[in-house]
C-alpha cells in the first residue's frame, strides 16, 4: 500500500523557470508554454492498518526536514491542479531512477514507513489540434528523449526513465 505526495513550492520554482527558458532557446515556438516541478514522495508501509493521507498529514506537519511548510505545499495522490487556458494541455511526467537508492525508513507515530523521492515535471503545451496520444508522443520525443542534436533537459536518460502519470 503506497501513498503519494506531490510536494511543490509555494513560490516560483527556479528549476522550472530556468528549464523553460532553456527549452525556449532550444526549441523556439515549439517549446512548452509552461513547466511545473514537484518532488514526488512515495510512502510505503506494511499492509495493515492501511496507510493514508489522513495518517501522514499531521505527522509530516512536524517533519520540516521532509516538507518545509514555509516554502512548500503537499498535494496527496494526484499532482497539483492547474487551470489552463483553452487550447493548452498539461502532461505530468514522473522520472524513475534507473538505480534507485534504498528507501530510507521513517518512524511515524508507531509505524515504520519507507519513503522514496523522485521528480515529477508538469509540461504545458498547445494542443494544436492534436489528439492526446499524438501530444504525448511529441512531449516524450522532443522534451524527454531529445532530438536534432539537442541533449534532453528534463530527463537524463542514463540516470532515469520517464513515464506519464
Amino acid at each position: 500500500m503506497s501513498v503519494h505526495a506531490f510536494v511543490s513550492l509555494k513560490q516560483p520554482d527556479l528549476h522550472a523557470i530556468s528549464a523553460l527558458a532553456s527549452l525556449k532557446t532550444a526549441f523556439g515556438d515549439a517549446a512548452p508554454k509552461n513547466l511545473f516541478r514537484c518532488r514526488h514522495l512515495v510512502f510505503t508501509a506494511a499492509a495493515y492498518p492501511a496507510l493514508s493521507a489522513d495518517f501522514l498529514t499531521p505527522l509530516l506537519a512536524t517533519r520540516f526536514d521532509i516538507v518545509n511548510p514555509n516554502k512548500e505545499q503537499i498535494g496527496w495522490n494526484v499532482p497539483p491542479v492547474v487551470t489552463l487556458s483553452d487550447g493548452l494541455a498539461l502532461f505530468w511526467i514522473d522520472l524513475i531512477p534507473r538505480q534507485p537508492d534504498p528507501a530510507p525508513k521513517l518512524r511515524l507515530a508507531d509505524r515504520e514507513v519507507a519513503m522514496t523521492s523522485r521528480v515529477t515535471w508538469g509540461i504545458v503545451l498547445p494542443t494544436g489540434g492534436l489528439g492526446n496520444e499524438a501530444l504525448q508522443s511529441r512531449v516524450f520525443d522532443v522534451f524527454v528523449i531529445g532530438k536534432s542534436g539537442v541533449s534532453p533537459l528534463l530527463v537524463n536518460p542514463v540516470l532515469e526513465t520517464a513515464q506519464f502519470i
Binding site: 538505480q99 531529445g146 532530438k147 539537442v150 541533449s151 534532453p152 540516470l159
Partner: peptide, 27 residues
C-alpha cells in the same frame, strides 16, 4: 557529460551520467 561530449562526442546523445555521491549504495 550533459552535452554528450564524452565519450562519443555525439551531440544530443548522453552516454555518461553524473549521479549523486554514494557510499556502498547509500547517498
Amino acid at each position: 557529460a550533459e552535452a554528450g561530449l564524452i565519450p562519443m562526442g555525439e551531440a544530443g546523445n548522453i552516454e555518461v551520467g553524473m549521479a549523486h555521491n554514494t557510499r556502498e549504495g547509500q547517498p
